[in-house]
Amino acid sequence: MQAAVRSVLAQTDSDWRLTVVDDGVAPGVPEWFATITDERVRYQRNEQNLGVTGNYKKCIGLVEFDHVVMMGTDDIMLPNYLECVRSVLAEYPDVAMIQPGVEVIDGNGEVVRTLVDEAKRRLYAPRTQTRRVMAGEELAKSLLRGNWLYFPSICWRVDALRDVGFRSDLEVIQDLALVIDLLQRGDSMAIDPVVCFQYRRHTISISATGAVAGTRFTEARNYFLDVADRMDSHGWPKAARIARRYMSSRIHAVTLLPAAIRARHRAGVVNLSRHAFGPSRRSF
């Protein structure tokens, strides 16, 4: 958390406001923020735990400017992040989302290449060496084939984010759902290959532990089948077909099966196998 805050303080572009909303109870955190004298940093701790989605909603309500980054507590902004994003906005002022270049770090802050992230980069992300804008069914197809976004690194236009909002029924696939909702209403995303953000991937996290247990895939399967129907109704049949197959999600489940077997996680093995090899069927 301290490294994340210091990375914002180190931005080459000094025009920013950092608001930290603490949804935990870890000791010493309020005291550490009390030592920061920079008036651009403000901190508050929730009186009660709001959960991931509840805290997102609260954060959006506190935003005072036109654009926002929902940065994670352990991610790192490289010094050129704001400079890069503002350059994109100068060229494409109307986009609702900006996805800059990202590199992945582990729990120790070392740059790493994981199977998941290599798949994102090599198989799913658009191959571009220059800045570009994507929207409509083209971007929906790309993301439903394999979600290559890094949610904490995205810069959002606040009015678009508030209009669509976060879905209370989702957690691990919340970012994809939000972007698809924005695309359906006609918004666009700018992509810049310049690396200016470090996304931290831990072995132990909400998504990682839920993945080995297979529980996160129930949410994913239900979402893909629901959004497939929406894509059909919206007149995006190619995106609907991709969503209905949810092939990248099936492949992800297959890659986690060995870990579930080694851990003798019987329920995880069953859940992962059902998701990877079973029919496209909603779970309730």
Rank of each mutant, 00 (worst) to 15 (best):
I204Q: 10
L178A: 00
V172A: 02
K238R: 04
A240Y: 03
R216E: 01
D232L: 10
S207Y: 00
I261E: 13
R262S: 13
D181F: 03
L225R: 12
I173Y: 15
M189Y: 07
A228Y: 09
G214F: 04
L256F: 11
A267F: 00
L257N: 07
R216W: 00
I173W: 15
L182Y: 06
W236E: 15
V227S: 01
I242W: 07
G186N: 06
D187W: 13
V227M: 02
R221Y: 06
G186P: 03
P193Y: 12
R241S: 12
A228N: 13
R185A: 04
A263K: 09
D229C: 06
T255C: 03
R241E: 15
V227R: 04
R262M: 07
G235C: 11
V212C: 10
A177R: 03
S207W: 00
R264Y: 05
R244G: 07
T203R: 14
L256R: 14
P237T: 12
A239P: 14
A239K: 12
D226M: 06
L182D: 04
D232C: 06
A259P: 01
T255M: 09
M247A: 15
A213T: 02
R201L: 10
R230V: 01
I173A: 02
L176D: 01
H234Y: 05
V194Q: 14
I251R: 04
